[in-house]
Design a binder for these strands. Structure first.
Lengths: 132, 132
DNA sequence: CTGCATGCAAAGGGTTTGCACCGGC
DNA sequence: GCCGGTGCAAACCCTTTGCATGCAG
């Protein structure tokens, strides 16, 4: 997860981190871009993507590869789980009763060496519920 | 899941279904296209996409929205789970010991009305394991 | 015949990348 | 000053769509 290559804290990178930390919403790259642009109007979307990628590769933030949707980013790099609103795509953290492990639930791994679970809950967020 | 609009069994649609049934690999749209093209050389990729979409909307096949990857299609429309190879992306069915429900594992849904789980196991497929 | 399905090609959305310049350290 | 980071724009990949034509029922 960590690399030894030099790592420069540019103003762009710092601002991206700050905005990501300030957002509880697990924003998409474009949402991060829009927020950061208010403070650094000349930043480019490419820079946002490159930084989110770099920060995720170093384990500073977490990349959420949403099934069939836009990628989102999470300031909290610790392993945890999410609910995603099936209407608007909003993502929020959830807490499990007990940790879940593959061999707890898996009967037959079909010849694969299982190394993890990708799990996400689907739901309807408060805003979308009241909107109906 | 079902629609009342007329549903024509064209040769393209039939061939796509047959090839999907014959493939145990949960192929991507392009993989289906390549297979079908051997039998119907003039078929277009757009037709494959449209048919896979239509068939999924009618519950005849299942669309697998893979996190951070290409969409895949499953001939079996029943709810079941998959392992995905983190190296080559191959997908295979797995069997669970017991069914899993959201409120079994979820402590705090964070205000969401939870309607489902999206779950996928990650692993290394036999082919990639022996290749290492 | 009717109107859904097709082939083709162009457009679309999200993400990545090549390149010359910029600026942390 | 070195070399990683940036802005810009073009390229990229996968998927969707508009349109005229084809063909199943």
């Amino acid at each position: 997860m960590e690399s030894n290559r030099a790592f420069r804290m540019t103003s762009q990178r710092r601002t991206i981190l700050e905005e990501l930390k300030g957002a509880m919403t697990h924003p998409t790259a474009d949402e991060v871009y829009q927020r950061v642009r208010r403070r650094l109007p000349r930043i480019s979307l490419g820079t946002v993507y490159r930084n989110l990628e770099t920060l995720a590769a170093r384990g500073i933030i977490r990349k959420l590869d949403v099934p069939g949707g836009q990628r989102r980013f999470d300031f909290n790099p610790e392993l945890h789980y999410h609910v995603r609103c099936v209407h608007c795509g909003a993502v929020r953290d959830v807490v499990l009763k007990v940790p879940i492990s593959p061999d707890q639930v898996l009967k037959d791994p079909g010849g694969f060496e299982v190394v993890g679970i990708q799990m996400e809950f689907l739901g309807i967020c408060p805003a979308c519920r009241s909107r109906q």
